[in-house]
Amino acid sequence: MDLKLQGKVALITGASMGIGEHLAETFAQEGVHLHLTARSTDKLSALKDRIQAVSDVTVTLHPIDLTEAGAAEKLSDAVGDVDILVNNAGVVPSGSLFEVDEAAWRQGWELKVFGYINLCRLFYAKMKQAGGGVIVNNIGNGGEVFDPKYIAGTTGNASLMAFTRALGGHSLDDNIRVVGVNPGPVDTSRIYNMLKKRAASELGDANQYSELEKTYPLSRPAHKHEISDLIVFLASFRSGYTTGAIFTVDGGIASRRSII
């Protein structure tokens, strides 16, 4: 299937590891030129080398801490116009209301919540002036599964879901599509760190995290390509009538509800 992405330009935040890293490689396979941002210069440089060894695309790196004052504006100025923005940066700490203090809560939201909002504000305006574009917010199924042991994350993700629907509901008036993706557990270092923390709390031994992993659908987290392939499709011509919507990829976890 030709996604008609050849020659497009994408900005991916949080691109140095995990889903963002795999997204960069997947977009490059489709011929998309890349602007990649994250805090780690070394990881970004290694990713650029891997991509350019196998794909004929330009890769421009922007090592930056998006939580710093004015960072979003600096990034916007440095990047210029893009066809696709993928908001992917940020990790909100896990824990209960009494385990996540105000400072940690605000720090997590500064990048994951306000970072998404700020970049949408900046790049939506650019896309409108340029005649169109696509914004994909990689959010997380925590916005649908109200886990009290991930209370800062579930609250932030639910906010981003509402924001994505509100912005995307009328964005086609400007030839812009705004969509969200809610991954559940994904095969990255982050999910195993969370599993180990939960195993230490609930089972008394962080090394017993595999017992918790067995409770997932298919007894595993999602493969990275099961998330990145969807995001690339949503950013493409093939998904041209999709906006103001959230797509959940969690093996059915968010739908495992009961009336009792």
Rank of each mutant, 00 (worst) to 15 (best):
A245Q: 10
S96Y: 03
Q208G: 07
D77F: 14
E144Y: 03
V32H: 00
R39G: 08
Q29H: 04
E73L: 10
K4V: 02
K8Y: 02
S189Y: 11
T188K: 12
A245R: 02
K112H: 11
T243P: 07
A10Q: 04
R220S: 08
M127K: 01
T188M: 13
N138Q: 14
A72H: 11
L122M: 10
T155W: 01
T155P: 09
E99T: 05
I51E: 02
P185I: 01
L172H: 08
N88P: 10
V100Q: 04
G80Y: 08
D42M: 00
A78S: 15
K224P: 06
H62W: 14
C120I: 15
T67F: 06
A254E: 10
H62I: 11
E21F: 13
K214V: 05
N88E: 13
S210H: 12
D83T: 04
I117Q: 10
G80A: 12
E226D: 10
L230G: 03
R198M: 05
M1S: 12
E110R: 13
P185Y: 04
T164V: 06
D101P: 09
K48C: 03
D187C: 04
Y192M: 09
Q129S: 14
F123I: 00
T67M: 06
V179T: 14
K128E: 09
P183V: 05
G90D: 03
S171Q: 09
A78T: 11
L119S: 04
V57K: 01
I176W: 12
I231Q: 07
G169C: 08
E211A: 08
W109I: 02
G140I: 09
A235Q: 08
Y124H: 13
T60A: 11
R257S: 01
L36I: 09
K112G: 03
R106V: 06
T164P: 09
A235M: 07
E99D: 13
G31I: 02
T243C: 11
V134M: 05
V136A: 14
M194I: 14
G70Y: 12
G153S: 13
I84R: 09
G115N: 07
A200R: 11
L61P: 06
A69V: 14
G70C: 14
S189T: 14
S159D: 02
Q52I: 01
L5Q: 04
K196C: 01
L3V: 00
V82R: 04
E144H: 02
V86C: 02
R121L: 08
S236N: 00
E25R: 12
A89T: 06
D174N: 15
A254W: 14
L230T: 00
K8W: 01
